[in-house]
Amino acid sequence: MNVTRGFTGRPRVPNAALPPGQYDAGDDWPVLSAEVTPELAPADWSFRIDGLVERPRSWSWEQAHELPESSYEGDIHCVTSWSKFGVRFGGVSLDAFLSVVRPHVSATHVVAYSHTGYTANLPLADVTGGRAWIAWEYDGRPLAPEHGGPARLLVPHLYFWKSAKWIAGLRILDHDEPGFWEGNGYHARGNPWEEQRYSGD
């Protein structure tokens, strides 16, 4: 251990929900997008799933809203070290979309991509089984553009760069392909509980 002289740090608040190396951001919700926030109206938004699926298809804003509602209440964790507790997102479970397109048995990974061109790769197992959403509400209100509105991917058990803002689609693959940050030195999976921040962690 490399102790820093004179460093005491914040008061210790035991919090079993805080992954290693993270701090509680409280009411803050930092915005860290690397691109210009797009002007994207709900009427111009669409979501597509294709690749290794039986029936590739696209959903408009209205069509996506016809799927059963699902919400997430819990925590989110950013690779830059902040975590935010007790957030509430509303949208549709990704399972509802995937059950329509039916991924092929050979499918193992997805690349999520945004209307801006941002990408993030994820194992298929991380976006199925009630662990991922297409979210368009935050705290009961429409999701703000700088936070990914009208709709973003939400995969709260992984670092938040995986939860692609302004989500446009998923390409289903039988192999892993690095997304935007993963190609810039970040970890392929990004599990906060194993502190998988950068490639090599």
Binding site: A34, D50, V111, G117, Y198
Partner: peptide
Amino acid sequence: TELAVVGVPFAPPTRFAVPGRIAVGEQDAA
């Protein structure tokens, strides 16, 4: 079923300031 073309990485239809400007050394970052 749409089959991915082997060896051609997926690229989304729209792209912003595309990839990073440099390759990042994995060992140095670790």
